[in-house]
Design a protein around this nucleic acid. Sequence first.
DNA 1: GATGAATGAGCCTTCATTCAT
DNA 2: GATGAATGAAGGCTCATTCAT
Lengths: 201, 201, 201, 201
Amino acid sequence: MRKIDPERQQAKRRQIMEAAGNCFARRGFHATTTAEICAEAGMSPGNLFHYFDSKSAIVEAIVEEERADTAAYFAALDESSDLLEALLDFLDAVMAFAADKTYARLALEIAAEATRNPAINTQMAAGDAQTRADIARLLRGAMANGQVDAGLEPEQAASWIVALIDGVFSRLAMDPGFDPQREAPMLRLVVSRFLKAGSAR
Amino acid sequence: MRKIDPERQQAKRRQIMEAAGNCFARRGFHATTTAEICAEAGMSPGNLFHYFDSKSAIVEAIVEEERADTAAYFAALDESSDLLEALLDFLDAVMAFAADKTYARLALEIAAEATRNPAINTQMAAGDAQTRADIARLLRGAMANGQVDAGLEPEQAASWIVALIDGVFSRLAMDPGFDPQREAPMLRLVVSRFLKAGSAR
Amino acid sequence: MRKIDPERQQAKRRQIMEAAGNCFARRGFHATTTAEICAEAGMSPGNLFHYFDSKSAIVEAIVEEERADTAAYFAALDESSDLLEALLDFLDAVMAFAADKTYARLALEIAAEATRNPAINTQMAAGDAQTRADIARLLRGAMANGQVDAGLEPEQAASWIVALIDGVFSRLAMDPGFDPQREAPMLRLVVSRFLKAGSAR
Amino acid sequence: MRKIDPERQQAKRRQIMEAAGNCFARRGFHATTTAEICAEAGMSPGNLFHYFDSKSAIVEAIVEEERADTAAYFAALDESSDLLEALLDFLDAVMAFAADKTYARLALEIAAEATRNPAINTQMAAGDAQTRADIARLLRGAMANGQVDAGLEPEQAASWIVALIDGVFSRLAMDPGFDPQREAPMLRLVVSRFLKAGSAR
DNA sequence: GATGAATGAGCCTTCATTCAT
DNA sequence: GATGAATGAAGGCTCATTCAT
């Protein structure tokens, strides 16, 4: 008699998510067939649909994982440390992810899919809002410490920081010469100057 | 005997491009069927394919038009005027377009499509490179005039300005609270601070 | 320039309905694939779905045609003739149809399908109600003429006559020895005795 | 060491048959998945297929049970009693079953399935033939007693009585206003008049 | 130039059944 | 006996594009 093993279940789901992620990054979400995902995951279609209700559900799981990871990143921050530095470190971390071709392409694919899949859009919008809130929190702290221009609205400033991050992934798609490794310091620079306390408008 | 009338031809193509643009903005590129475009354009499929070889060719024409418009915008600039101001005005113009829901959604759809359609990607990359070159030219002039931090690399700085623009459209998709009207001054601010001469790193 | 030709359209639909009817009678509704219908109709799937939105829509069209035919049959009756005889003639007509193997099997298939397809069920129920109403009308006339037991409720009596008709098709499915040709007079007899004026309960 | 316990085995089969019957009545035979039957029976698919070789085998068992029950009904009749009355009582019993929504829908589902499943068709045809034979036997006895028109062929008359019964279930599917409770006396009436000794054709 | 009927390859998903544990 | 994960064939339908008129 075998009981349902949630760990095994989760492992299978992970396996599928990874296989799907590779396929999506390689060929795009729409161009990827479930058959391809099955092949990549070494699994029959019947079995794949045992773990996910639909192709879309796989993306949703990927998005959710990403959201959770980002949330965990911010939750782990030491609130007593240098908050501006913490924000800039986050940007470095983003650039490190962006340097991974597969990750970058997958991020783009998912964003594109969110354009037309309302479920994914809603989910991504939620994660996005959460990230903006986390950044705004850092900004508020940094303002209190005098590290950041107190004349800025934290939420609005966070929006523009996230816009820059989105822009990075767009650059990766449009400009073959855009090298994340080389550009990481520039992202710090752009954000630093934007936030700098004592700036005159 | 009637000769081929290139103007009439061009008018029909425009009619199709507009119909397709509306459909793409409304339902997305992939979800839009050629039948829908035909209906919106008041035209039979046989006829539509008389003017465009493929659905993709319609997008390519739209992208090309956009590219030409942007190129014309920069070509029309008075080189002897305030170049930094010219750049910031360009950003305002972008935000004005972004305020148009249909335009914004269409831009997003096309960017998403470029993700997987190599022809469109190549074409957009070319337009993108051109825009960066135009911005870099402005920056170089503004640097010569001492308006912009001469320590920046013009091409690299242009990249980040374009990244911000891309980010704006991403914001429109992800954040329902992002209001182009209200955010236009912020875009000026972010770019101004980034470029400001005399900034210390 | 070709205009939509409604006759040609209707002819195609008929062609498909006949092909589908043959397939359904031969293999059953569920076992029949759209590919089989296409093959039987000499047509590509794309084209078939140009004329019918779904496999189910084909059955609906068949049912509708049947309903219209039956309605036309009753509408064409001479109201001044012998109404009881008209009813019994109708029963003979039904038995003549039942003698056609393909028709009989198709009728059964459709009835079975109505069991689980609500759209078809509704439609068949409507046709059924109409037929019962038509029969009840005949009965009322025949009662006025003293040909039919006036103690019967016309609608209720009509129900039982229709039940017998349904029962005939059931017999054809269950009893290989049930020969419509031979049984036609029996149907007249059962109904005649049931309706006979002057019967004592 | 545990021996195979046939009673336990039989109980499990019954449990499955009942669960399946409920599902079939609720959603139809084809629409019911084995997974649903498993859920209703509180059982894993592996286990279910341990007791029945196939989904079809479950229906076959249900049909067989029904056949046996009907056979038992006739076997239990007192041959010395009023045979016409016995027949009419049987009809009342049928109507009582028909009044049970679940039973009625299940009967219909199974009849529909018999349309396309040869194994079930054969089996139902056998039960049907048996019932007709039982009714014919009653009729022969009733003829001998002068209760039934001796001019009728017993087998043929039985066929038409069974046709009426089938028709009742058809009515239940097609006519929401058909109330078994109310119609039971009518079935008696139709059959009585049909069989009545001394009838003139 | 214009029409709309015709094509056909391809995809997501279902589900009865089997099998390893 | 019991579990539930795994299988894989099959099917309805879509839609960009072509072609006869």
